[in-house]
Design a binder for these strands. Structure first.
Length: 299
DNA sequence: ACCAGTCAAGGAAGC
DNA sequence: GCTTCCTTGACTGGT
């Protein structure tokens, strides 16, 4: 069974191998020089943690890794607006990036990302669109620095977010999609959601795959919460087909009390219906939950 | 050392 | 047309 870790290893966290972050409020509270120095150290740390996490996955038979979307905090904030090259210790950061690149090459771990839940390419607010595009481009920029393929093998997975008339929202989305670089476009995939009733697997497929060949990420828990009467098996295969020759990255999780809050550990096993899939495991106990699934799947 | 409160984001839902 | 909630992990400040 091919499983993928989402962002954080709880095992490494307990050994104080942890991501760090910085808020805009904190950045603004000190001189720009001082804040840049601190931010630089945080970013270098985050790439180092990423490298260690990838090697930790490889050592534990975990086949994939979803990058944190907060590796380089606040550099895209409108009032900060920095490229990595502008940071005081860029050489140190660049060196860490090269180590991450090497780790991916040596371990053959498959990586992807799930940029912020707040990204929206369907918003009526131009600022929201601009910020979303900037965020996606930053993800693609990091992927390019890491030498990752410009293909769905290394996907950037997002949601549509806005609910309502599917035709209308699809048009807005595609108009903004055209503003993205090829580095983003070639990796962008769309995941079913359950916040309203619009974006289940079948609608994503109908509007974005049939017309524009954008693959659909199947998330079993979102499907459970919103399926419009479609069986899980059918939704799985409908989504599977949209990935063509690329092995899909799907999401697996279980809900607490039958709700959408993620459980700590899995009770069941991801269902692959005999197909080859990489499952991002979205459970709170992270690698502990993955190792438990792998153990149980062997029996 | 620990704990409660803070921070960031866009959209939806509830007054 | 406001406020609150949703979500998440690290940070911050008080004890």
């Amino acid at each position: 069974m091919n499983l993928s870790l989402c962002c954080i290893s709880n095992i490494l966290s307990e050994k104080d191998i942890k991501f760090r972050t910085m808020t805009f409020k904190s950045f603004s509270s000190k001189s720009r020089e001082e804040s840049l120095e601190k931010l630089s150290g945080i970013i270098a740390n985050n790439f180092l943690v990423t490298e260690k996490t990838i090697r930790h996955c490889a050592a534990n038979n975990i086949k994939g890794y979803r990058f944190s979307s907060d590796l380089c905090p606040i550099i895209n904030h409108p009032d900060v607006n920095l490229s990595l090259e502008e940071l005081p210790n860029f050489k140190l950061i660049d060196n860490e990036i090269k180590k991450v690149k090497l780790a991916i090459e040596e371990t053959e771990i498959r990586v992807g990302a799930h940029p912020s839940e707040y990204i929206s390419l369907t918003s009526e607010n131009e600022n929201v669109i601009n910020n979303s595009i900037k965020d996606l481009e930053q993800h693609a920029d990091i992927f390019n620095r890491l030498g990752l393929s410009e293909s769905y093998y290394n996907p950037l997975n997002i949601h549509i977010r806005k609910e309502g008339d599917a035709d209308f929202l699809c048009n807005i989305f595609m108009k903004n999609f055209e503003r993205l670089s090829c580095s983003v476009k070639s990796r962008l995939v769309l995941e079913n959601n359950d916040t309203g009733s619009t974006w289940d697997v079948l609608n994503l497929k109908k509007y974005f795959w049939q017309h524009y060949n954008i693959p659909v990420t199947f998330d079993n828990l979102h499907h459970k919460m919103l399926n419009n009467g479609v069986a899980e098996r059918d939704a799985f295969f409908e989504a599977y087909e949209t990935w063509n020759d690329t092995i899909p990255i799907f999401h697996y999780s279980e809900g607490k009390d039958n709700g959408r809050a993620h459980k700590d550990m899995a009770e069941h096993l991801p269902e692959d219906y005999g197909k080859e899939v990489l499952f991002d495991v979205e459970l709170k106990s992270k690698d502990y939950a993955i190792l438990d699934i792998l153990r149980r799947a062997e029996c």
